[in-house]
Structure formats: structure tokens, C-alpha cells
Design a protein around this nucleic acid. Structure first.
Lengths: 114, 114
DNA sequence: CTAAAGTGCAACCAGGAGGTTGCACATGAC
DNA sequence: GTCATGTGCAACCTCCTGGTTGCACTTTAG
């Protein structure tokens, strides 16, 4: 690891909760919905889901805690929208791991051919 | 969504368990370790971890179920190694979502400027 | 003002996730 | 053959997660 262990560990600690938040079908659907439609209220997001409003609220809060979405008040409604920067983090992490992965396979290949 | 809802839903259903498997610090460390060192046995992987061998075994099986790693026998040892293709799936999914995300922001921007 | 809409809060519940321990079983080393 | 090594299996435990329901509270609509 060219960046050293400290950076590597820090990356892992940030990435795990992020992936955990993405690791739920309902939450991925919420993300898909928000990206397709733009900012929506809780009630609107609950509409096509097959779970209760409270369940949706909890999912949104989980996504919010890792910074994937954020909310704001509009009258009596609470509007949720996507937070682009955070998704890039996840992508960057996967790109990085993917590269290390390829490197490892390259080394293995070289070793086998020895 | 240009690919239609069926494809979109299928993608979500595949992606969620994959991200869930990645959403654990110990498992990310196992992946990092395997990518840095190459194939390793359970005992070797347990070495630097701070949980028991059985815990490590369970984590490896979780990773194996979503196809991120695979195992083979070598004498009395069980060797685990990375499975590159699956990581690309995750990356491809994030790239896709990230693109939709950008599109959504683009549309929103256009709307606001109206 | 009154009613309905949209949320927030809290209690509660079942099931799964992550962890441990103990013991049996295979296999390599000597 | 014997002993140490490396795993597999199973039981068990605790805590978190995803889900529900009931009720109170704030706003908007009429």
C-alpha cells in the first residue's frame, strides 16, 4: 500500500458505514427515486414504497447520517435531496480498491509464471 | 431511466447485498489484506485481526456468498482469494447511479434557473 | 376556527448479524 | 503411529436493524 497503513485504515473506517448505508434495497430505491425525480417530501417518498412512513423516515435518516442525502423544511413538509459529494467518496474508494485488486492479480500472475 | 424499470429494479436487487457485504469494517480489512498479499488461509487472515478465527470464517463466507472472494482447498488449509469481476459490478453500479445523480442535479439546476 | 395533511417521538417487537466457546474431524510433520 | 495444526460444525449470546403502531404537534386549507 503506497499510502501507508494509517491512510488505508482511515479509508476503511470511512467506507464501511457508507457501504452499509447503501446495502439496503429500500434505501437504494429511495436514492434511485430521488435521483430520478429530484427533491421529495417524506410522504411523497412513502407513496410507492411498501413500508410505512416511519420506516421510510428511518431509512432517510440512515442515509443522512453518512451524508448521502440532506433534508430541509418547507412549511409542514420535510424535503429530502441528494448530496453528490458523498457518492463520489464511495466511488473513489471502490476505484482505489479495484486498482489495488488489479495490482494484486498482476503480482500473482507474475508469480505463477515464474 | 433509459434502461426501463425492470432493469433498474434488477440492478438494485443485485447491488444491495453486494454493498451490504462491503459495509463491514472487518470485511473491508480482509479484502484489503487479500489484495495486498494475495491468497491466504483462514489462520493467516485471522492473525492480525482482533476477532476469533470463527468470526473471520463467517466474514469470508459472507464475502463469498456475494461472489467477492472464493476459496479452495490446499491440504488441510482453506485458501481464500479475491474474485475481480464482482468488484467491477459494484463499481459499475456506483458509476451508473453517480451519472443519474449528476443528471438529476443538472435538471434541478436548469429548473431553478428558470 | 376547524379539519386535514405532514411529521416527530416513543415504545415495542422479531429476526438477523457479529461474536464467542467447545468439540470433533482431517491432514501434514516427524 | 502420534501429535500438532487447520478447519468445520453447532450452540449460544447480545445488540442492532428494519419494521410496526399510537399519539401528539405543527401547518396549511377552507
Amino acid at each position: 500500500m503506497s499510502t501507508g497503513n494509517v491512510a488505508a485504515i482511515a479509508r476503511v473506517k470511512n467506507a464501511a458505514p457508507l457501504f452499509a448505508a447503501l446495502g439496503d434495497e429500500t434505501r437504494l430505491q429511495l436514492i434511485g427515486r430521488l435521483s430520478a425525480t429530484g427533491p421529495l417530501s417524506i410522504t411523497q417518498l412513502t407513496g410507492k414504497a411498501r413500508v410505512s412512513r416511519q420506516a421510510i423516515t428511518k431509512h432517510l435518516e440512515v442515509l443522512g447520517e453518512v451524508g448521502l442525502v440532506k433534508s430541509s423544511r418547507r412549511g409542514r413538509e420535510r424535503i429530502w435531496e441528494l448530496e453528490p459529494k458523498r457518492l463520489d467518496d464511495a466511488r473513489a474508494y471502490l476505484d482505489r480498491v479495484s486498482k489495488e485488486w488489479d495490482d494484486a492479480l498482476g503480482r500473482l500472475q507474475a508469480f505463477v509464471e515464474d
